[in-house]
């Protein structure tokens, strides 16, 4: 974290009136912002308005940016808050718990995935099937946890950066990620067993 010279130069250039330098910021943060928007918002129609809103907010508050985090993390934070506000306004987000607390105490079930497939082709088919089951499980997660999983595993952000974006303590991020992965694994297990029956 801390000062990033290219970020600082870009911000100074924009503040001097070079609006076109902002496109560089858009290019640098496009992946992260797209990931947040798409994981938080199911409505494809609203994504354009939301993305414009995110970058307009970032542009207008650029003067208040103090380089206490990376510019991308700061824009990620704006993106996350904007999506969250949108979902709350539309009452599309379930406040409070993500999983029931009982889930944590659920029975530990074990299944030997590796022994299910024997030949190489079977292994490939098995992996493909598992991939699609996991993908549908990811879709069924709440937007906040889906975003968290993707930021950690796909965007490779640290717990600290995710905490900054979502305004959560690092410990909470770790705990939520643990529960999300556990839910994904249990979902995978139950769906696989159902298909096998």
């Amino acid at each position: 974290m801390g000062n990033n010279l290219p970020d600082q130069l870009l911000v100074e250039s924009i503040l001097r009136g070079n609006t076109n330098a902002f496109s560089e910021i858009v290019r640098n943060t496009r992946g992260l912002v797209t990931q947040i928007i798409c994981r938080m918002m199911n409505s494809v129609e609203d994504r354009k308005d939301i993305s414009q809103d995110i970058y307009l907010k970032a542009f207008n508050s650029l003067r208040s940016f103090r380089f206490q985090s990376n510019l991308s993390t700061w824009i990620g934070q704006i993106a996350y808050n904007t999506c969250l506000n949108y979902l709350e306004k539309k009452k599309l987000i379930l406040p409070g718990k993500f999983f029931d607390e009982d889930d944590q105490e659920s029975q530990e079930v074990s299944y030997d995935f590796s022994s299910s497939a024997t030949s190489e082709t079977e292994v490939l088919i098995f992996r493909k099937e598992m991939g699609s089951i996991i993908q549908s499980s990811i879709e069924s997660l709440t937007p906040v946890y889906r975003t968290m999983i993707m930021l950690y595993h796909r965007e490779e952000l640290s717990y600290h950066e995710i905490g900054q974006i979502m305004k959560l303590p690092e410990g909470t991020v770790k705990s939520y990620l643990f529960r999300a992965r556990k839910a994904l694994k249990e979902n995978l297990l139950s769906q696989y067993k159902r298909e096998e029956i």
Partner: peptide, 13 residues
């Protein structure tokens, strides 16, 4: 192994 599949699934997303 179950978690490895989860990891692979996330990467394939």
């Amino acid at each position: 192994a179950g978690y490895r599949l989860v990891f692979t699934g996330i990467k394939q997303y």
